[in-house]
Design a protein around this nucleic acid. Structure first.
Lengths: 254, 254
DNA sequence: AATTTTTCTGCGGGTTCCCGCAACGTCCGT
DNA sequence: ACGGACGTTGCGGGAACCCGCAGAAAAATT
């Protein structure tokens, strides 16, 4: 058995290395990579089926790396080992895990024992292990009680990137009015209206900007989420301006 | 000599502990705290004059902790030991270091030797040590070549919090038009206009929201900066609504 | 198939934002 | 003292945004 470690912090990396060797005596090789790119390359070259990785890395964070690894080999087992249970990360991971894949998500604050158990559960017994705290976040996020629809999350990202209503409409194939409807849903769910003591009507907020702010404060968005979204947007813009030279740009006006 | 370590990651904490003992044989006591609050308390109780701390902690990050520590005892020597050289952190630190204080800022990616040298320089020889990369960021940030004025940074924070032009005007004692002028400066400096390929005029951005987005991408803003700003804003709002019950709320309309 | 529920869409108006234009004040330097 | 650079403020208009209303379309339920 081979295990691939993708983690940018040297201290954490060597700690992981030791933990893996201690927990998995049947593991004869431990590979190490210090960022997403190197990790993807090693995973491809060595056909690693067992990966444990951090999420917050640069360049190329864990979510992007995991996506390409899983795209090439969906049966790969990945244990995410992160400092944070930000909703942005949890949602990002849930979004990319393939059908029936075995994976795990444990926090770095977990005990050595928990980490050992998670390693054995995932790599030996093919059982998913999601940290209690992360699981809670997942349910809050996906259970549509006070959670967010994909549509709502999508539009949140779009305004966080600074797109106008019209641009969002084009991108998502909607009318401008529909975009505004979704924005209103978003504003209500984020509780933007009474987000800070607004006794009189003077201390007022720009709803759009305020929504992004509270999303950040609630860790619904974080840097890496914005980074990924920006890259997607850049790609879309490129495709857009390429096709607008061939086709009629007013297709959606009828 | 006593040294106080404030760092939330256990691995990094014990590494620091070892590094301190190795670099400073004259140090007989090493205290540890795992977040800003605990750190402030220890610093106060033990009158620590030598502190090394992380920046990104929760609750109460390094900048806030350092501010209160320095407020109580400005001659305290603090070495910041952080993963990042985000402009937001660098600016946040520069903002709070007292006149003539001795401090340092080294990245966690630095070698053991660099850390050792920094510890001795700051605590023994009273000499500031700023990591090369951080120093570069500092100059770029403060040198007003392509750097940002305090006024510009201030208004950036305000729109990131979601305030309207009018609210900003009230808060900063300006007219609405002046606020808009500063916004325009900000937009130009952030290069919001051609930030992404905008071949036609259709792929358009909401300038205000876009400015916040690129500020985040450039790490001019980050989570802790927003958190601090939000706390400040809450305080101001409280004071505001308190005084508006006594005084005439239309003072600034003449 | 019929009905309910949800989502999408156009219209209209009130508000906020973006910004060019012009006037005024302060602080410089020659 | 004069002229210029810079920051602040008011005015005005065009664009974008927020959102209630109501009909159309789609999806879910019965």
């Amino acid at each position: 058995m081979k295990v691939l470690i993708i983690e940018d912090d040297p201290l954490h990396r060597s700690y992981l290395n030791e933990a893996v060797r201690a927990a998995l005596p049947e593991c004869e090789t431990v590979l190490e990579a210090e960022n997403g790119h190197a990790g993807e390359r090693l995973a491809r070259d060595y056909r690693s089926a067992h990966v444990v990785m951090d999420l917050q890395m640069s360049p190329r964070n864990g979510i992007e790396a995991a996506r390409t690894i899983w795209k090439e080999r969906p049966e790969t087992r990945i244990l995410f080992w992160s400092n944070y249970s930000d909703e942005a990360y949890v949602r990002g991971v849930s979004r990319i895990v393939p059908q029936g894949a075995v994976y795990g998500y444990v926090l770095k604050s977990a005990s050595d024992d928990r980490l050992r158990l998670a390693l054995r559960s995932i790599f030996i017994e093919s059982q998913c292990v999601i940290d209690r705290e992360v699981r809670g976040m997942q349910q809050k996020s996906l259970g549509n009680a006070n959670g967010f629809t994909d549509a709502e999350y999508e539009i949140l990202v779009d305004i966080a990137l600074g797109l106008t209503d019209r641009a969002i409409a084009q991108r998502r194939n909607l009318s401008v009015r529909s975009v505004q409807n979704r924005l209103q849903q978003l504003y209500e769910k984020l509780d933007v209206y009474r987000s800070l003591g607004h006794d009189p009507d003077d201390g007022r907020f720009n709803l759009r900007a305020r929504a992004v702010a509270v999303a950040f404060l609630r860790k619904l968005l974080n840097h890496s989420a914005i980074e990924r979204a920006e890259a997607d947007l850049a790609g879309w813009l490129a495709r857009q301006s390429a096709s607008s030279r061939d086709a009629d740009p007013f297709l959606r006006d009828g």
